[in-house]
Design a protein around this nucleic acid. Sequence first.
DNA 1: GCAGAGACTTGAGGGAAGCGGC
DNA 2: GCCGCTTCCCTCAAGTCTCTGC
Length: 636
Amino acid sequence: MFRKLSLVYKNSLIINCINHLHISEFSGNNVVRYKVRLKCVKSTNDVHKSNNLRKRNVPLVKNLNENVLERTTTVMKRWEEEKKDEGVKWKFLEHKGPVFAPPYEPLPKSVKFKYNGKVVELSPEAEEVAGFYGKMLDHDYTTKDVFNKNFFKDWRKVMNEEERELITDLQKCDFNQMNAYYKEVSEKNKNRSKEEKKELKEKNEALIKEYGFCIIDGHKEKIGNFRLEPPGLFRGRGEHPKMGKLKKRLNAEDIIINCSQDSNIPKPPSGHKWKEVRHSNTVTWLASWTENVQNQVKYIMLNPSSKLKGEKDWQKYENARRLHKCINKIRDDYQKDWKSKEMKIRQRAVAMYFIDKLALRAGNEKDEDQADTVGCCSLRVEHIELHEKKDDKEYVVVFDFLGKDSIRYYNEVPVEKRVFKNLTLFMENKKGGDDLFDRLNTMILNKHLSDLMPNLTAKVFRTYNASWTLQQQLDKLTNEDDSEAEKILSYNRANRAVAILCNHQRSVPKGHEKSMEKLKEKIDSKRDAIKDAERQVKDAVREAKHGSVKEKFVADKKKKLLQRLKEQLAKLEIQETDRDENKTIALGTSKLNYLDPRISVAWCKKYDVPIEKIYNKTQRDKFRWAIDMAGPEYRF
DNA sequence: GCAGAGACTTGAGGGAAGCGGC
DNA sequence: GCCGCTTCCCTCAAGTCTCTGC
């Protein structure tokens, strides 16, 4: 019924749009609807007195907005409680089921696989898996022993008796023709004609139209990943012990469907049956399967633009805002705990300090068959170095470890003396491979955090500190008189501060040096053009002084051109700074997952920057709730 | 209190699409 | 209209955290 995010006030449902409040007042079975222009409302009483407020001309909506927003927390609490009680995520769910990966197309006969220099004709099963490897021949993965060993072991499992007997050494396998063939296909695809591209696009759009949406509680919502993962070789990150293992092709018999009992149940491909059809409305997934490499359940879920995901996102940031209200008390408490007699409490307090100050992840324990990465609770002695003095700074801790996705975290941090002393104590009589916090794990930590504030976990600190940093940096860096480009640079710098805090790195983009050089050349030639234009303006002004209307017109035109060139130069210089500062930092992750979008929306509204300059289409879809909700006055 | 399963979020990489300059 | 670069968006791995059962 209502697509906008809504708030409840007294007996009314209030939907806050950019210029209007849409209010539906409930009285028994009757619903009275008002659409109120924000500028015309003085207080909440005005809304309830009349439904003809558009005629009134009383400025100021602040009172109403604040009253409504003040009640948000209460309303959310109630919603949370309601949902918790029932555990219900939806009442009706209907979808068409997932799209399977296209079937394997055998290689042309001309593409040969050779073993020990001799052509060997492979069975279709063995050929398909060999093709996965052949495709990756140029990749770094195929130079790694673990990858090769795992691949070869799994490949042999799909071979027939004869192949298994013959092919015993990966070194003797020649996948070069397969590799060349796949490159050729890729090249052909790139050079598809306009008509072919159009046809392909239409086919894809038709597929999305049919399978890309579901009906959930009366709304048509986009599905996030309606295509099942195709078979291939597992590409774990970092030194993953399972890299190269075969990810098997999925059949209907592997898939569990989740939908309403009274909906049109998705049909499996003919001759097949779903593993199970379930009607569980306490979960949000539409289909699931267990992948064979890590034995983990994978899901088909809704797109981030959906109401369900949007609500969860909102709750996440409200939770982080709640932390803001008690952060000082929590900080005081953990600082006191640095002196605790109990080792367990001291360790917990130091870990909390790291999570709060450095935005470290919680650091769950990991199995042997996963890459060796760590977070706060799983730090080992070998991951930190203590320096009483380093580069004129006292009590410096040097962190050096591999975090999520095997991304290196390196940071030299001056810490409080008491933290330093505690760390020395924790490290006493331990070897490099021993746990730094041997009395702590994420469960103990999160249990303690939830006692301090409902729903508080280690992750909330990351969200809180990221959003708080953005707000502070925007306040500090934004100058009202700046040009739009300068304001956007300030925004990106604030975003960058968060990305650095969260250690969101990226590899230097291919051709970065080259593109910087080109940009510099452009800037130089723009500077030359400005010098030239300045000379021309000087001449034109001199001539205009004694000349006719025409000469004055020419002089004006030259001045305008000069002005335009200067603006273009400023933009290019800003672009150069921005691009260089962004070389190894990824802004997207923090923007999408950690920054309360209402901060950005409010900033755009306050400083008159189009929201399109900050969020692209997908991001605007995801943050629709925030765009509708936040006014220029919003503070995190 | 612990382990394992399940559910969901976070994350970097890479291919496709789009756009600006020539 | 083509080319090359940038941005977008999808993919799927890798986290966090909760729940359940013993």
